[in-house]
Amino acid sequence: MKFLIFSDIEDSAKQVMSFLKGKGDFVLYTTEKGESLTKYGAQKIVLLTGKPEVKGISSLLSDEFSSGGYDLVMIASTVLGRDVASLFSGQKSIEVIPEIFDIKFNSGTVTTKRYGLGGKAVIEEESKSKLFTFLSGLSDDVPGDGSSPIETKNIPEGVVKILAIEQKKAKEVNLEKANIIVAVGRGLGKIEGIQQIEPLVKAVRGELAGSRPVCLDYHWLSEDRQVGYSGRTVKPKAYVALGISGQIQHIAGMRGSKVVVAVNKDKNAPIFQEADYGIVGDLYQIVPKIVSYL
């Protein structure tokens, strides 16, 4: 079996290559320059240069798919990836199974899992589909010692003109690698509250994260610290949710955690359904107490 992979994000590229190792040959198409991508056993890495216009990328991939003898296409579910996949699906009239977090290859069919109803259901389905978008967190990142050759290809220009590309602030954190994550939600109440959480983060040598409102609406934390369906998918040894109510969108991003601890004022908060250990009460009182017992 031969896979065509597209990811404009390094982490997702590494995860999917780790996942596919031993399951077939694969070629990674990416806009990311990382030298570290060569250590995952790809037959080759095709670095896409030029402006990242989605129609241009999907046309290029669709030509490569036809000429390269590929069986299946795996595209990282990112802002660009989802568009590339949808255009590819339309252009090639190939049905896409979107947002998968697991895939098994049978003879002639695949069995995939994805969330439905906003995370309230896991849909397991069997199909003959050849095109998938996959969520971040598909697999652990397991580098090997190979060295894939890199070639470059230029993205053809399309009818959409790219005028400017501004880099967002550099990523501060790699939540996927954290052993312990301390995450804050709306219940924190104010940005200044973060200072009072930091002693706990330090004491457990963990990383600070946040829910969607905290990162995207209030900007108390940077976007790359957002855990949830639309943010990072994490699987730490321990996940501490402080003042997070437990909306399904958040749960989808931390469900794989080994142990979940929740602190919330509201004893009916849904997060307690998803927790191993819960404390009902004021997080500003409880956090220093936990620190004192460490």
């Binding site: 439905g116 995370g119 259901a121 896991v122 389905e125 069997e126 199909s127 307690f272 191993d276 404390i279």
Partner: peptide, 19 residues
Amino acid sequence: TSKIISKKAPKSERKRLIF
């Protein structure tokens, strides 16, 4: 072309020890 095998609520096997 796809057939749904199952559509269940995600399993949560958490301990739920609430203090």
